[in-house]
Amino acid sequence: MDQPALTSRFTLAYAYKRSLGPVIGAFMTGLRDRRILGARTADGRVIVPARAYDPASGEPTGDLVEVGPSGVIETVSHVAQPSPTDPVQVPFAWALIRLDGADTSFLHVVEGSAEALHRGLRVTARWRAERDGSLRDIEAFVP
């Protein structure tokens, strides 16, 4: 006799939460509050995103410093045809952005055509209305 197979929905997920720690946690909380934070290194540079350790020296970083939300495009790679997995669905570019007050560049997307976006262009963050403390709280940078 045909029996219908027993089925059950299963969502693979971690059954725990973990803290991001005092530095990355502060960075993500800052995004929720529309602020971008960098960390000051022992030699006085400001690295963005904030990290607990200076990647150049391995030394712990110090104060958190607010940077941006505007900056200058340093390197840009245009995407004419966004794929469904891309963060925006209009012509855009992946860009390394040197935010005001920062000494390193920050990867995000900038909306605009290949003609409109170029090295040296000033751009600013456009914030998502509903923010939850993730990198996607910035929808995109725009000229």
Partner: peptide, 24 residues
């Protein structure tokens, strides 16, 4: 997982930035 994966850049996007840095 914090600063790159949420944006999901494909490998060619990151390599594109490196290539553009060489061109620049």
């Amino acid at each position: 997982p914090y600063f790159l994966a949420p944006l999901g850049p494909p490998p060619i996007a990151l390599a594109g930035l490196q290539a553009q840095a060489l061109v620049d």
